Amino acid sequence: KAKLLVLLYAFVATDADTICIGYHANNSTDTVDTILEKNVAVTHSVNLLEDSHNGKLCKLKGIAPLQLGKCNITGWLLGNPECDSLLPARSWSYIVETPNSENGACYPGDLIDYEELREQLSSVSSLERFEIFPKESSWPNHTFNGVTVSCSHRGKSSFYRNLLWLTKKGDSYPKLTNSYVNNKGKEVLVLWGVHHPSSSDEQQSLYSNGNAYVSVASSNYNRRFTPEIAARPKVRDQHGRMNYYWTLLEPGDTIIFEATGNLIAPWYAFALSRGFESGIITSNASMHECNTKCQTPQGAINSNLPFQNIHPVTIGECPKYVRSTKLRMVTGLRNIPSIQYRGLFGAIAGFIEGGWTGMIDGWYGYHHQNEQGSGYAADQKSTQNAINGITNKVNSVIEKMNTQFTAVGKEFNNLEKRMENLNKKVDDGFLDIWTYNAELLVLLENERTLDFHDLNVKNLYEKVKSQLKNNAKEIGNGCFEFYHKCDNECMESVRNGTYDYPKYSEESKLNR
Results as ranks from 00 to 15, higher is better:
Gly210Met: 07
Lys59Ser: 14
Pro140Lys: 04
Val216Trp: 08
Lys59Val: 00
Ile256Val: 10
Ser158Pro: 00
Asn211Ile: 11
Leu86Trp: 04
Gly104Met: 09
Glu102Ile: 15
Ser91Cys: 01
Trp246Phe: 09
Glu116Phe: 04
Lys70Thr: 15
Asp113Gly: 08
Asn262Ser: 08
Pro233Met: 10
Gly104Cys: 08
Ile132Trp: 10
Ser52Ala: 15
Trp267His: 15
Val32Tyr: 03
Ser122Cys: 12
Cys83Phe: 08
Glu187Trp: 10
Gln67Leu: 13
Asn26Leu: 04
Leu121Tyr: 02
Leu164Gly: 11
Leu176Tyr: 09
Leu127Phe: 14
Ala105Leu: 15
Val190Phe: 04
Arg154Thr: 13
Asn222Cys: 09
Ile264Pro: 01
Pro65Met: 11
Ile19Tyr: 09
Val149Asn: 06
Leu68Met: 10
His196Val: 09
Ala212Val: 15
Tyr180Val: 02
Ala259Met: 10
Glu228Thr: 14
Tyr107Phe: 12
Arg223Ser: 09
Ala105Met: 03
Ser125Lys: 09
Pro251Arg: 09
Glu115Asp: 02
Cys58Gly: 06
Gln203Asp: 02
Lys70Ala: 08
Asn243Gln: 15
Lys38Tyr: 06
Ile112Arg: 09
Lys234Arg: 14
Pro174Asn: 11
Tyr9Gly: 01
Leu176Cys: 05
Asn103Met: 07
Asn145His: 12
Cys20Ala: 05
Ile281Gln: 05
Asn222Arg: 02
Gly252Thr: 13
Ser208Ile: 10
Cys71Asn: 03
Gly104Lys: 14
Asn145Ser: 08
Pro99Tyr: 12
Arg232Cys: 02
Cys58His: 04
Ser150Trp: 02
Asn182Met: 05
Pro197Leu: 02
Ile281Phe: 14
Ser179Met: 12
Val214Ile: 13
Arg90Asn: 15
Pro134Asp: 15
Tyr107Val: 09
Asn262Pro: 03
Pro108Ile: 01
Ala89Val: 10
Leu272Val: 15
Asp17Arg: 11
Pro65Ile: 07
Ile255Gly: 01
Ser137Arg: 09
Tyr180Ala: 03
Ile132Leu: 15
Gly22Arg: 06
Asn27Gly: 08
Tyr107Trp: 07
Asp113Ile: 00
Pro134Glu: 14
Asn100Ile: 03
Ala25Thr: 07
Ala16Ile: 11
Asn211Cys: 00
Asn141Ile: 08
Val235Ile: 15
Pro266Asn: 13
Thr34Trp: 02
Glu228Cys: 10
Pro233Gly: 07
Thr177Gly: 09
Tyr268Asn: 11
Val194Ile: 15
Leu249Phe: 00
Ser273His: 12
Gly193Cys: 05
Thr143Leu: 06
Ala89Met: 13
Thr29Asn: 15
Ile281His: 02
Ser123Tyr: 13
Phe130Arg: 02
Trp192Tyr: 14
Ser126His: 00
His196Asn: 14
Leu36His: 00
Pro174Tyr: 12
Leu87Asn: 03
Gly185Tyr: 01
Asp253Asn: 03
Gly146Gln: 12
Val181Cys: 12
Leu8Arg: 08
Asn262Met: 03
Tyr213Gly: 01
